[in-house]
Nucleic acid binder design. Structure first.
Lengths: 123, 123
DNA sequence: TGAACATTTTTACATCTGTTCATATGTTAT
DNA sequence: ATAACATATGAACAGATGTAAAAATGTTCA
């Protein structure tokens, strides 16, 4: 949730774009705001240590809510809440076996993103 | 900021780890909490649409605060705030030319992470 | 030096987010 | 059907976060 302005409020007040030509060129090449927004939403999901810990745990093995609660020392409820967010973002999937539901990473994309991030952090 | 508990509060209450063996194995292989925390912090930086828009603008060209303010239709102050966060996370760097400061993406790591994310979003 | 400009910083505030607690849903086995 | 268990959901609260507004810092040039 970012801007909401009467269009060229920018120029009028104190937003002085120093390089008009560059600004226009960059604006032309920007991806649709919708994509950028979705992208931010995706990273937002990765941007929480509980969820990251869940994802890394699932890196090793499929796990049920109880397992994750044990691993993270969190309540099953808290885990379930975060799993819902991860499910909605299509970062994890699940399969049911009796009353137990096993969660796992959704695809290799997730692994790649995590690895890229870790590389940057390790520098 | 996640856990802070008298160690095995987990087992005592209602955290029933269904698969003890799996839990132990996963716990052994988890990266240090410190890394996971830093990783979450990194993604948190990507997880805001204003910052994503800044990064994508910088994808095209180095830009000064005024340019970015024009492109995003935000105040220079707001832009500067977000740039500070991006600087601290080492996602952008800058060079000064007179009174103007030009910002640019810090390295190709950043581009890669953005691209990976976009791929996932485009599915 | 002092005026003009580019950027940064501080404070304040409204919104968003994660966890807890209580309750509900769904599954299995008796 | 009922008890026991695994997971999910809803409401509420505390802490984190982004933006606006105002003031400060730093740089150039006359």
């Amino acid at each position: 949730m970012t801007n909401a302005q009467p269009d060229n409020a920018a120029r009028e007040t104190d937003y002085l774009a120093v390089h008009e030509d560059v600004v226009k060129r960059v604006l032309d090449r920007q991806p649709a705001d919708e994509y950028l927004y979705d992208l931010a939403e995706l990273f937002k999901v990765f941007g929480d240590s509980t969820r990251i810990r869940i994802l890394y745990a699932l890196f090793e093995s499929e796990l049920c809510v109880g397992d994750l609660a044990g691993i993270l020392a969190l309540s099953p409820s808290a885990v379930s809440h975060q799993l819902k967010i991860l499910k909605d973002a299509k970062l994890v999937r699940f399969r049911r076996e009796g009353k137990i539901i096993f969660y796992s990473l959704d695809d290799d994309h997730v692994r790649t993103i995590l690895s890229m991030g870790m590389e940057h952090v390790e520098e």
